[in-house]
Amino acid sequence: MSTRNILLFGCLIFVAGCSSAPGTWGWYVIDPRTTSGYNNIRFLLNGFGATILLSVIAAAMSMVIGMLVALPGMSSNRWIRLPSRIYIEFVRAIPLLPMLFWVFYGLPVVLKSMGINISIDAFWGAIITLAISDSAFTAEIYRSGIQSIAKGQTEAAKTVGLNYRQTMRYVILPQAIRRILPPLANQFIYIVKMSAFASVIGMQELTRRANELVVTEYRPLEIYTLLILEYLVLVLIISFFVRWLERKMGSDESR
């Protein structure tokens, strides 16, 4: 189903809802023409900021952690490789929701026992969880992208005197980035969607707000439909931006 069809389908539900018998549908809860509907919509849309901020910071952290994990993971020394391997296998095996609970409720206890008194609020709890959970995947994306650059490039860099850091910076990464970008964008979309889990620890993002409104308005179908459309719009905007970026980098290469 193309994105256009999905949008059409969404509109169809809306139209059907407006015209059918009262009681089955209740789009009034988010009808901007009424004061309460307008306020409800504002309440729901206000979650965008938190969802976006959460996702962007988590993705940025995941990209950094992923690189720190991926680079030693490609060492020829197995003892340097090992911790990176363990991290990836371990993190990848933990479902997001239990990890979120552990970070939010468990981590402060661990820190306290170590004499560090930091309370982790919902915002940072969610960010840390999303970043760590995603970093295992990011690391694997980096590894496959970097390893897809032929070994000869590293060897040539060595013979012109470049050290490891210079080889990565000037030779390998500029070539790998084009292969890394599409799967990395996929991961970002994944983070945006997974950020919905932050609602369970009280983070006021899109899903949390929808849940709260459902509790007061008893209109789950209409509110959750809007929620899904909110995520759809967000993801489509990201996709559009990524495709633009890919085109831009692709054309740089072919010139």
């Binding site: 000869g152 005197g161 070539q175």
Partner: peptide, 15 residues
């Protein structure tokens, strides 16, 4: 390595 240059079968230029 700084004394020795090397040329490869597959050129290995930086594309």
């Amino acid at each position: 390595r700084s004394e020795v240059g090397m040329v490869f079968q597959q050129f290995n230029l930086f594309p």
